[in-house]
Amino acid sequence: MNIERLSLDQLRVFAQVADSGSFLAAARALARAQSAVSYAVTTLENQLGVALFDRSQYRPQLSEAGKELLRDARQVLDQVDALQARASAYAQGQELEITLALDVFFPTAALVGLLQGFRAAFPGVTVRLEIEALGAVAERVLDGEAMLGILGTLPIVPAHLLHISLPTVLLVGVAAPSHPLAQVTGRVPERLLAQQVQLVLSDRSALTANQDFSVHSSLSWRMSDLGTKHALLRAGLGWGYMPRHVVADDLAAGRLVTIRTGAHPPAGLALPMQCIYRPDHRVGPALSWWLDALAQLTSFDPA
């Protein structure tokens, strides 16, 4: 077996014969002589040391080895086609990868819709998502690890970053129905908030380390994951602020209830979200798509 002498053309001919059902049909599809197609497949079989087709019948049938190796051949061809497409796009100035730093409060439904549109427009560009909170989003953009970021839990836009205003996310105070604060009618006094464990998102960045936003209690439990905070809230282990779109089903089902605090309006706090990016970052077609798509958002509510 001399696998290093295999050619992509041989693999394409092999796949075409399998798809067409005969050497003659494959020759027509490839606009080649039937003898050239037969020679390419025979040479490939000799190099691999196995028969890819059973030729004992009127039409060639894939052998057991041929069925297995056809999957490998298609995978190789797909990877080569992707390589060619990505290289061509990069030569024209298109990015090969987009890295986005997103705040944990950014609605997942909106993100899914954006990613669907992006994949349709740039199928060859890979996407790296980093979900962060507080200053970690801005830090990823400032240090160049992320091409753009979406701030939510950080109330300020760091200097030297360009920004695009996005729709707001409604932030509400919630607790389990069994929680002591859920028994309070009307606005909860600050002294009662301070007596209960508050579940707070922690900051993994140096940008805003040791800074607290909307923290009312010294009895705070801190975590970097919004899903963990959500689970602890439903378990009655504390109270905290959550994006309304994340807890909407829990509120409707009674697994959580809203609580009113002096820091937030009765209906909740409209939290501004911002798209941020560095002014010195080269804006290629893929990044330009994201900036345009985000700028056109008027609401995070499902259409």
Rank of each mutant, 00 (worst) to 15 (best):
G144L: 14
V125D: 06
E190A: 10
H281N: 11
L115E: 12
V200C: 09
V174Y: 01
D143R: 09
A293Q: 11
L226R: 05
A91E: 14
D78A: 15
L294Y: 06
A133V: 11
L251C: 08
R55Q: 14
A267V: 06
F213T: 05
D54H: 09
V174H: 04
F118P: 02
L291F: 03
S165L: 12
Q61E: 15
A87W: 03
R86C: 13
E4I: 07
V283G: 08
G240R: 05
H216I: 01
A73I: 03
G227V: 07
H163D: 14
G268H: 00
R74T: 12
L226Q: 07
V80I: 12
G149F: 12
L154M: 13
S217C: 04
V50Y: 04
F213D: 02
A120L: 05
L226V: 10
L70Y: 02
A110T: 11
A82Q: 15
R74D: 14
P155I: 08
E45A: 10
W289E: 10
R191M: 06
D54N: 15
H160G: 10
S205L: 12
L52K: 02
V172P: 00
P279W: 05
Q183H: 10
P158C: 11
Q196P: 11
A109N: 12
A253Y: 04
R140D: 15
T208A: 12
V283K: 10
L115C: 12
I98L: 13
T258P: 01
L96N: 09
D225C: 11
A85T: 06
A120T: 13
E95D: 15
P265N: 10
F300A: 00
A33F: 01
G113A: 06
G284V: 02
A33H: 05
L162E: 10
L226G: 09
R119F: 02
L237A: 11
S202V: 01
S38R: 03
G254L: 12
G117Q: 08
R204Y: 04
Q94S: 12
F106E: 09
Q10L: 13
Y241C: 03
A206E: 15
S165W: 03
V112S: 09
V246H: 03
V41H: 00
Q92A: 14
G144C: 14
L142F: 09
V137M: 09
L294H: 07
